[in-house]
Design a protein around this nucleic acid. Sequence first.
DNA 1: GACGCACGC
DNA 2: GCGTGCGTC
Length: 621
Amino acid sequence: NATVFVATPEMFEEAKEVKTIENTPHDYRLIDTPEGRVELIALLLKQERISFDTETTGTDANIADLVGISFCITPGEGYYIPLSANRDEVMPILEEFRVVWESEHIVKVGQNIKYDMLILKWYGINVKGRLFDTMLAHYLIDPDTRHNMDVLSENYLGYSPISITTLIGAKGKNQGTMRDVPVENVVDYAAEDADVTLQLANVFEPMLKDLNAERLATEVENPLIYVLADIEKEGVRIDMDTLINYSKELEIEIRKYEQTVFEKCGVTFNLASPKQLGEVLFDKLCLDPKAKKTKTGQYQTGEDVLMALAGKSDVVKDILDFRQLQKLKSTYVDALPLLVNPKTGRVHTSYNQAVAATGRLSSNNPNLQNIPIRTERGREVRKAFIPRDENHVLLSADYSQIELRIIADISKEENMLYAFNNGIDIHTATAARVYGIGIEEVTSTQRRNAKAVNFGIIYGQSAFGLSQNLGIPRKEAAEIIEQYFAQYPGIKRYMADTMNFARENGFVETILGRRRYLRDINSNNQTVRGFAERNAINAPIQGSAADMIKVAMINIHKDIQERGLQSKMTMQVHDELVFDVLKTEVEVMKEIITHRMRTAIKTDVPIEVEIGEGENWLAAH
DNA sequence: GACGCACGC
DNA sequence: GCGTGCGTC
């Protein structure tokens, strides 16, 4: 199907130059008088929809100070209100604008509104009304791509906004802040931001309608901004003394393991360097003549590789212990106290709502979604997450086997639904079926294997992946999977249907219609295509679970507000919600949380929630 | 800045 | 399968 490419004049026109502020008509105004503000506020209050943006001194919304605010009502126009470094001068001006932000009727458009909302919260302003976040809109349109404003503007408006680096310099220690930039330069930058954001919203709104993603935007992602902003502002209390003491303990143990390893290997080297460790284990000690290398030519020294060598030398146990403790100390025990906010004495994570392509949240600074739990020593870190004060307890609620319940619900697999409907442990039930034995006869190894297959199914894993995971021959893994599909034919059908849908449509979607495009699903490259195929299976499951907990969060947050409760949601870990609960509110909170989590999305499978309370995060589990 | 590794769901 | 962060090089 040969196509003749004919260049049109328009193509040259577009290729010639991208639009910028230099060649685009605009009317950006500095508003720095009381009269100007009165006039602007009167105008803003007449609108159904406005966009706004804040200029601040940094990227951490729990620390940064306001430098100015900008608004846009009509494309091509914008207003910038500078604010002084003196809070006493800022407050009265923000007070004037409070009616605008707190209006229930005006839709607020913004790019990453959670940031601006959090900044304003620290100044006592609580944004209200419907939101339209352009970053989240684009996340729903195409979650795998980038969503920063500059890229969106170039791609959808053909317009290249003023780069922040032209104002405050390149990233690095010499980067200034917006406070250092002369106001006349900030006006164009800030007003342009609000202008571009409004124009993007005008482009994205119809796109969301076409995708049937409007409800996902208006009922899930945008309302969730309020919930996340509150969680982030609240933060969580950690016990610094416990961590600092634990750090000293770990330091001593780490040095001990290190010394032991050096003695057993007969050489001192940097044990934290996988490269050096590989050379010692495989070149010097020759523990495995067939040792595998990474693509960069280093020996592989991951946990699975080392475990396989445990029989050859007892030094590998010491190395693994060293690794575990080193990880614990550097990533958690030493890092968490450094992230305690001096203003609040608490740790305020940041949830990113537009990073994970499946619809999950991610967390950073610090990442509260990967705090250890599997090992005894790791669990110690969880004990450092404590309630606000002696009148509170930590309450943790998590979905039981949510992803398997979702695949059972989507696929309507009868045997799996039966297990869930009758409260049978799903991995045991799976093992009984796969091995053709009674529930009571299932051994722990059989259950472990069945559990690995269940996980593998969720990940779209192959027989190869399963054999790797369980350390069994591929043939054996293939047999287990064959039995699995024979016992759970609905799952097999679901996987085939999903793959076909993806091949025909180029995307898959969740229960709520969240899409993920799979550009490589028909690729001729098997590796590339295989990756897309695993995504096709995994994304609807992982994403539907994300949809569900997001809805639950919004509903719980609303219930807490409406009932005037003092307890707060403080963390989300994919299938778990954590709350700082006033002791007198424990019972009512448990009721609200369980109810809202179970009924967030209607399913045929029963949704179960495990809930507990305690004097720290570990005890609450 | 890429890579290997390890932590979570 | 989806993430974030640390240390090395």
